[in-house]
Design a protein around this nucleic acid. Sequence first.
DNA 1: TTCAGTTAATCAGCACACTGACTATTTAGG
DNA 2: CCTAAATAGTCAGTGTGCTGATTAACTGAA
Lengths: 157, 157
Amino acid sequence: MAAVDLNTHPGHLARRLQQAHYLLWNAMVSEEITSPQFAVLNTLVAEPGLDQRTVGERVGLDRSTVAEVIARLIRRELLDKVRDPQDGRRFLLRLTDDGVRTQRRLAVRAARMSQVFLAPLSGDEQTLFFDLIRRVADAAEGLRNPAEPLAGRGAST
Amino acid sequence: MAAVDLNTHPGHLARRLQQAHYLLWNAMVSEEITSPQFAVLNTLVAEPGLDQRTVGERVGLDRSTVAEVIARLIRRELLDKVRDPQDGRRFLLRLTDDGVRTQRRLAVRAARMSQVFLAPLSGDEQTLFFDLIRRVADAAEGLRNPAEPLAGRGAST
DNA sequence: TTCAGTTAATCAGCACACTGACTATTTAGG
DNA sequence: CCTAAATAGTCAGTGTGCTGATTAACTGAA
């Protein structure tokens, strides 16, 4: 039987983790505003007037996905988008008053949610949880643009 | 400054982790077959003749998503679907010869990929990595369908 | 037997997420 | 100045992932 145990597959675990987070976010934070949408709002509170590309960089989304998320926030009137008079390619993004209020309200709920989410772990374990995930994610991103090709059939690492 | 550091948000980390995995999967395992598609193939190697609902349960996907994943695998002729003569609601799923071959080939590559993915962690850390994520995900899933009603489930909202 | 509830699957609709091709604009080189 | 490269954003296409409504089939009770 050549079948593999999915519980030893990091991809499966990562998906389950995100799924669990999605569920709890909906229950405890908002059914209207998603976690990526909040990430965008949050970024623009910290740095008003960013352009789309930079927002995408901050929250870790590609240009297409950022464009869609932003379009939805604009439709909900949480965000405004104006051409940069200095550079006609860019759009400058700025929260509306409603956007600022929404970010403030959700930030509190998101913090509560994180506590519940991480409750099964002790304080030390929570630190470790963040550290391990970050290290794995950083390393994989580092493989994105290496000096040497990685697609080869190297028998050993 | 009311803005939150996204690096302390488990949802953000979970998304980055999955993203990193997606990237490495594409580079090292397959550009055709996705990780969830492989999970379905893998499940049907272990248990041929399952119905869609049960496959979804095994791989952690809801009915709609499973249906779409399966439709794509059928379109690629890796899978066959026949009505259960015992229960006309069900479809029984079975891999084609090509499906079996594909699962075998990808299982090897997936194992290699997992090694690379987890390489930044020591052996003990890898065990911890799985353990912590599983505990968080399990706990969050437990909040979904509790044996008894939740305390904070008031009439509000 | 009939009818009400349950269950498996589909469908419509929404949202995230990526790639590759394209448009518009800016910038750099000659 | 003019053109070529680079950059910001859009668009089309594909795939994952969820909910809620619907359809078809089975099951159990009156």
